[in-house]
């Protein structure tokens, strides 16, 4: 991880590192430490006294039915977003991998939604699915669906899922396409000569060889659904109606910012940090293994 040939300076490397280390300490370690410390404290109702309570905040949260509901919402939301963002991406990548004309144009036209901000994606979908002014919303009502995502929790969930998945397909598409293009053509030829049909080739050759990409994308998409969709949810539903679209990350924000319940919010932050660290660790272990084979 280091060069054989290096410079002998004693002070310079510290000067080069200083800006990044300073920012990292100030805005990563200090807040993370504070979150861990605060998660062990509890304020009384008037905010006058602070008490050290060990893991009481965690115990309270994990018993809170609202928090458990948020966990369930997050699991449903993340699984749906992951599947809906990955399956169409794989299909499109398989099609774009064929030797067709205008493949590059198609690629560009599929890739650009990546650049749209999550909150802006939410606005686009809101404008289409608005029950009284949206073109799709009105269509649904004409077809006899009682469509109003502002009142119906399941519809709100569906809309948040669609808007979140829509934005993420392009990312998955690029990685699937890169994965497909790295599969040696000779293997596919061999399968073809052995008389394997397109379907058989996909399930017995392409899909297994694509599994490192698929697994990597699985982790990335779950992380995306957990954290990056805050903007989508806030712009579309603000967690409503009721609490039907409150995910874990949305709850941290609501508790810390609106309810000013710092102990509970900090404990939730710590739990989420643990989740991210676990996901990252899984990803790195896996990538390490991928390098070996």
């Amino acid at each position: 991880m280091q060069k054989r040939v290096i410079f002998p300076n004693k002070i310079l490397p510290y000067a080069l590192l200083a800006p990044q280390i300073a920012i990292t300490v100030l805005f990563f370690f200090l807040p993370a430490g504070q979150a861990i410390w605060q998660s062990l404290l509890m304020q009384d109702a008037f905010g006058l006294r602070v008490e050290f309570v060990w893991f009481e905040n965690f115990a309270r949260i994990l018993k809170d039915p609202n928090y458990l509901a948020a966990i369930k919402t997050t699991v449903v939301f993340s699984s749906a977003v992951t599947v809906l963002a990955m399956a169409p991406a794989l299909l499109l990548a398989l099609m774009a991998d064929r030797q067709i004309r205008a493949a590059d144009t198609f690629k560009t036209l599929i890739v650009w939604p990546y650049a749209v901000a999550p909150a802006v994606a939410a606005v686009l979908w809101l404008f289409m699915f608005h029950p009284s002014i949206g073109v799709v919303g009105q269509l649904l009502i004409q077809m006899g669906v009682k469509w109003n995502y502002a009142l119906d929790g399941n519809q709100a969930m569906l809309l948040v899922i669609l808007a979140s998945a829509w934005k993420q397909v392009s990312y998955n598409f690029l990685f699937f396409l890169a994965g497909l293009q790295s599969i040696p053509k000779s293997i596919l030829e061999a399968a073809s000569i052995d008389g394997a049909s397109a379907r058989t080739r996909f399930w017995t050759v392409i899909f297994p060889l694509l599994s490192p990409t698929t697994f990597f994308l699985l982790v990335v998409n779950v992380v995306y659904a957990f954290f990056d969709t805050f903007g989508t949810i806030d712009a579309l539903t603000k967690g409503g109606p009721g609490t039907s679209t409150v995910t874990l990350i949305y709850r941290v924000y609501v508790d810390g910012n609106n309810n000013l319940n710092f102990g509970a919010s900090a404990a939730q932050s710590v739990i989420l940090m643990a989740v991210v660290i676990a996901l990252t660790a899984v990803q790195f272990r896996y990538i390490e293994r991928k390098v070996h084979y």
């Binding site: 060069k3 290096i6 410079f7 490397p13 590192l17 979150a35 990350i249 932050s269």
Partner: peptide, 28 residues
Amino acid sequence: YFSFPGRMLAFWMIFVTLMLPVEVRIVP
């Protein structure tokens, strides 16, 4: 390009921040 005491510590300090997206540490 340099060898100095604390090099690995600095590297790991930077590396672990990979695990803390802004949304997680937002309130603190």
